[in-house]
Design a protein around this nucleic acid. Sequence first.
DNA 1: AGTATGGCATAGCAGTGCTATAGATAAGGC
DNA 2: GCCTTATCTATAGCACTGCTATGCCATACT
Lengths: 216, 216
Amino acid sequence: MVSPRVADPAIRAALIQAAASITADEGRHALTLRRLAREVGTSTMAIYTHFGSMDDLRREVRRAGFANLSSYLGSVRRTRDPVADLGLLGWAYYMSATGEPNLYRAMFLDGPVDAEDFGAGIETFEQLVAAVRRCVDAGRFSPADPVHLATEFWSATHGLISLQFANLLPAGEAVDRLASVSMSLYLGYGDEANAARRSMALTGKRAAAFSLEQAS
Amino acid sequence: MVSPRVADPAIRAALIQAAASITADEGRHALTLRRLAREVGTSTMAIYTHFGSMDDLRREVRRAGFANLSSYLGSVRRTRDPVADLGLLGWAYYMSATGEPNLYRAMFLDGPVDAEDFGAGIETFEQLVAAVRRCVDAGRFSPADPVHLATEFWSATHGLISLQFANLLPAGEAVDRLASVSMSLYLGYGDEANAARRSMALTGKRAAAFSLEQAS
DNA sequence: AGTATGGCATAGCAGTGCTATAGATAAGGC
DNA sequence: GCCTTATCTATAGCACTGCTATGCCATACT
């Protein structure tokens, strides 16, 4: 039995890269079979041998996006102030989404997400739950199920982002609500909230440093 | 000067109706120019004389969706318990979205919304703000800007709905978070929250009655 | 009644995702 | 070294998409 010719993994990687780039720059409508083949310098059939269909290619783009988001959020350092850590996590999520809106759309808004592709995303959510848990354990949050709180935090952030994408919220307004909603969720408007809001102010300073670190 | 033949408004209405129906039943991909013309029993050109393009037709479908959502939420009766009213408002919004997920997608998730189309939606938001304001004025909520609170309420609800659509939240979980997040937003986890949660329980009973009323 | 204005039908355009078929290419056996 | 063979890639064509140029014809005014 002879081993036949194998598909070139470099072509596969170039296809994913180019597809992600086109999607990010011009949106999902700009990503067409023939254009992608032309830009990578191959034929349209290569896309079918490597992925099977355009939908499967798009799925691979989403997968890369989830992995990228996961490593981006994973680079948020943990400090001794868990509330400030959580604030920075939400801020980083927002920045990642609005920095590449078309990719975020493709990942979360364009259709259902199948579980296996979201693998890296699940780790990200676990990380969020852990950050919330640290706040609860440190007595900085009113006691509640960290999974529930993390889900609500995620929903509110995701909701603000997608309303901003729909042109129903100006960007500045979304950022303001982001900071406010996360604190309201966990603390209400009582006295303890003030300490939390001081932590949120810290988030602003750390956010600037985080951006510089990511840019380098 | 002679007045020429005028476009038939019945055809226009039938086109919008059929387009909305196809979109709701089978999603945005199912709505094609030729199929729509075939189902309505006209030619493809009629769509261009009435709307100009498929994108403009889709815009008209969204517009109808916003008007429909507005009248649906407008039928929520106001009672003497403003917190229960607000809870029912959020519940009705969730039910409307999940009842016709493809239409909600087309309205809020598929792309930017231009302001004039959202006209009826703006009224809905004003109505939400008013409901929040009644809660604040009645001393049932901690004092805060009703516009901000309404925005956060909307974001959280919209976020839960779109995460559910993306298969990232089971439906039951989304409903549970919806009830929890709205109360957390306004009240935190303090003592006052309990009275609010009793109002939320009322919401459940009124929701059943509301559904029956809508169905008839 | 005659006319001209504009809605509607037909046919064709370039583009889409996808596939059947033919050709190029690389790995293993001798 | 070559030849065989399996598999990848290229070409051409399918039915479909949104859109438009063109001509027919119904309608409302003179």
